[in-house]
Nucleic acid binder design. Structure first.
Lengths: 195, 195
DNA sequence: TAAATAACTTAATCTACCTTAAGTCTGGAT
DNA sequence: ATCCAGACTTAAGGTAGATTAAGTTATTTA
């Protein structure tokens, strides 16, 4: 009960469910505690879980051919994440997902996700809105990557995600911004001195 | 009739509509022919149209403070586009949308879009899938921007959108890839000589 | 058909950011 | 307490890509 308050309230902002519908939905969720630094999804594994974060912070990232890490997203309490492409198409994951602080999550299997959408079509609406928001967020990121330099991107990042800045290593922030940790260090130094 | 075949078939891949539902949907669409180089959405205007491309190619782009243009997307026949963030939130557009060849489109007003989703909830499913695909596409673009250099991005671009390459100026391709037209010219030169 | 405008190329110079490498600081594990 | 590995800093030298500017080729437009 307790545990499902946040997710139900979050969903309730977009659709209204009857008590039975809420109970049915909750019955599909798998509760899991994830200690800091635990990897819950690994490249190559089938990624068949959609993850809702109850508390904590997770990070998804990928590795390129040369072993360079790129952070795809940081996700905080009340966010959803997965390797969306691979979840939807039931392909092996191209990404890793790990906890970057002690977290607890609720997970929904792909099969249950599909059945849920059929059983309670209101969830189509909920996930449409979720996908819409994810889409517009990503599009903004693409544009900012193209139009802003590293320092401008860093400044926007700390304004947009102040909670993350305080919890995450600079190396990981650099890999989100697409720069090296060394260069981020230099940017940070520039920001301080005179003001 | 003729004109609506493509859009109905495209929607029919994801949901099945009754004849009345199809007719209702079609009654909401506004048909418009858009000559090459016509701008149909301008920064600052309220963007309250969702656009389906029947034939032709459109481009959306934005301008940064220094007047630099960034192409957000190229959209071909059977694609949907708009300034999604501004359409959904009924804000003034932050982007421009123009035809880059003679095109014809079907448009759906925001108010009709909202009513359609209520009247025929199956459309929630259709647009969920549309948003999903848009999201995963954008996420891939973000990652490629971070991990690939300009030449690699160009090579992927021409593989993924061969039809666009033949119809669009290099200046516009450069602004999609986030490089200058001069540097794209250099990349293209490198590609030819020996092979 | 000519003139004008825009697209594309080429090349020199410049800069944002990377690479490498060495050094400091920190938090866990023993 | 000590050791160690990882996080962060600093700095020298290198490179991808920008900027500027001039020249060439298309495409409009008159």
């Amino acid at each position: 009960m307790e545990i499902h308050n946040a997710i139900l309230q979050s969903i309730g902002k977009h659709i209204s469910l009857s008590t039975e519908e809420e109970e049915h939905f909750i019955s599909l969720l798998i509760y899991k505690e994830i200690p800091n630094k635990t990897t819950i999804i690994t490249e190559g594994q089938i990624c068949n879980k959609l993850i809702y974060i109850n508390t904590g912070v997770l990070r998804s990232y990928c590795l390129d051919g040369r072993g360079k890490e790129s952070t795809i997203m940081f996700a905080m309490a009340d966010w959803w994440l997965t390797d969306m492409y691979c979840f939807l198409n039931e392909k092996p994951s191209m990404t890793f997902i790990e906890a970057i602080e002690d977290s607890c999550v609720l997970m929904l299997n792909k099969a249950d996700f599909d059945r849920l959408l059929t059983a309670i079509p209101k969830f189509e609406r909920f996930f449409r809105i979720l996908m819409q928001n994810a889409y517009t967020r990503e599009q903004l990121r693409s544009i900012e990557n193209l139009t802003l330099n590293a320092e401008e991107r860093y400044v926007r990042f700390i304004k947009k995600y102040p909670q993350i800045v305080s919890n995450v290593s600079q190396k990981q922030i650099a890999s989100y911004l697409g720069i090296t940790p060394e260069f981020l260090s230099l940017i940070r130094k520039r920001q301080l001195p005179d003001k």
